Simulated scan of single mutants.
Amino acid sequence: MEPLELVIVLLCVLLGLGRGADLAFATDVATGLCTTGAVWWRYLALGAVVLTAVLVGRSRPLPEEPLRSRRPAAGVLAFAGAVCMLAAGAAQFVFAAGTVSTFVRILLEVACAVWLSNLGRSWLRRDGWKTPAGGLPVAIAGSALFYWNVLMRFMENSSSWHRVQPTAAVWQEMAALLLLAALARTLYLPQPENGRTLHAAALAAFCLCLCWELPRVLLLLAAGLGSGAAAVLPELLSGLALCCIGGMGLACIGQGKTGND
């Protein structure tokens, strides 16, 4: 890992710690509104770290060869994400089914679980790399969940800029979508320019999907252990799946020699 990448990882971890403190001490749990400090400072911190991560990612293309080899960390995270995504779909079906949009989301979560499990299987193979099964159609179907979630966030959430979580959730879904789309392009449609896009998407996903999301997942876990586990279970499992995808972003950063973009 390059020095600039280590700096980005450190900034993302610090951002996550700050987000955890903000949720614990400066955010109203019931409404999601900030109780201390201006909301714009939250957006400034998040935007600055994400922008820095994207710029660092665009500065160096990731080589494709390491992604076409055995990568245990990425494979385990992909499988964990698939399990969480499948469990989230099951929880949605049991506890929250009833609308067309919910059923569409369940189907897309299953498709995403298939795509992630195919990725995990390819990265964990001991008998040599093989392109993930299903081809580009499965990759597109598996990534479509996050496009759908972005649309649903805009249509269903009556949020304002003063509620940080719903707004940041749109950025998180877009980061996951861009990472999975970049992986699909790299694995199925190799082009020289894919390396920079994948690097930027991987760092942004690590920041938004893991470091920013993990404190909220821990808060949901604490709430579920306290009471009303069924109410938070679908959201908790979806958050865990998002964290796994963010971890995949970091695990996908190769250490091989870079080529020309």
Results as ranks from 00 to 15, higher is better:
Phe146Thr: 12
Thr99Gln: 05
Leu214Ser: 14
Val138Met: 13
Glu156Pro: 01
His199Lys: 04
Leu55Phe: 03
Leu145Trp: 08
Leu179Trp: 09
Ser122Ile: 04
Pro192Ile: 01
Ala181Asp: 06
Ser59Asp: 01
Gln165Ile: 04
Pro215Leu: 06
Ala38His: 11
Arg185Cys: 05
Leu151Val: 15
Ile253Pro: 04
Met248Thr: 13
Leu14Gln: 05
Pro166Cys: 08
Gly256Lys: 03
Thr36Pro: 01
Gly18Leu: 02
Ile8Ser: 07
Arg216Thr: 04
Gly247Asp: 06
Leu177Met: 15
Leu10Ser: 07
Glu109Pro: 11
Leu119Gln: 06
Ala87Cys: 13
Arg71Phe: 09
Glu2Gln: 04
Leu187Tyr: 08
Gly120Arg: 01
Leu203Gln: 11
Leu86Thr: 07
Pro190Ser: 03
Gly81Gln: 10
Phe154Tyr: 08
Glu64Asp: 14
Gly128Leu: 12
Val50Lys: 00
Asn118Arg: 14
Leu86Asp: 10
Leu62Lys: 00
Ala184Val: 04
Pro234Gly: 11
Leu151Tyr: 13
Lys257Gln: 13
Ala230Met: 14
Val49Asn: 00
Gly120Pro: 14
Thr131Leu: 15
Ala168Glu: 09
Arg196Gln: 15
Arg153Gln: 11
Phe93Cys: 00
Cys252Ser: 13
Leu177Trp: 15
Lys130Leu: 00
Trp123Thr: 13
Asn194Cys: 09
Thr27Asn: 08
Ala48Glu: 06
Val94Glu: 14
Ala184Phe: 04
Ala53Met: 04
Leu214Thr: 14
Ala251Glu: 11
Leu225His: 11
Ala48His: 09
Val217Gly: 07
Ser101Pro: 02
Leu203Arg: 12
Leu55Ile: 02
Ala30Pro: 07
Val232Glu: 12
Thr31Ser: 15
Val83Leu: 15
Leu219Ala: 14
Ser69Ile: 05
Ala48Thr: 06
Val104His: 04
Ala133Ile: 02
Phe25Val: 05
Asn157Asp: 05
Leu180Ile: 09
Arg19Gly: 05
Ser227Cys: 02
Ala91Arg: 03
Leu15Asn: 05
Ala251Gly: 11
Ser101Ile: 06
Ala202Phe: 13
Trp115Lys: 00
Ala251Asp: 08
Thr99Ile: 06
Gln191Leu: 08
Val114Met: 06
Ile8Thr: 08
Thr36Asp: 09
Thr258His: 10
Leu236Ala: 13
Met174Leu: 13
Gln165Lys: 05
Arg121Asn: 13
Gly98Glu: 06
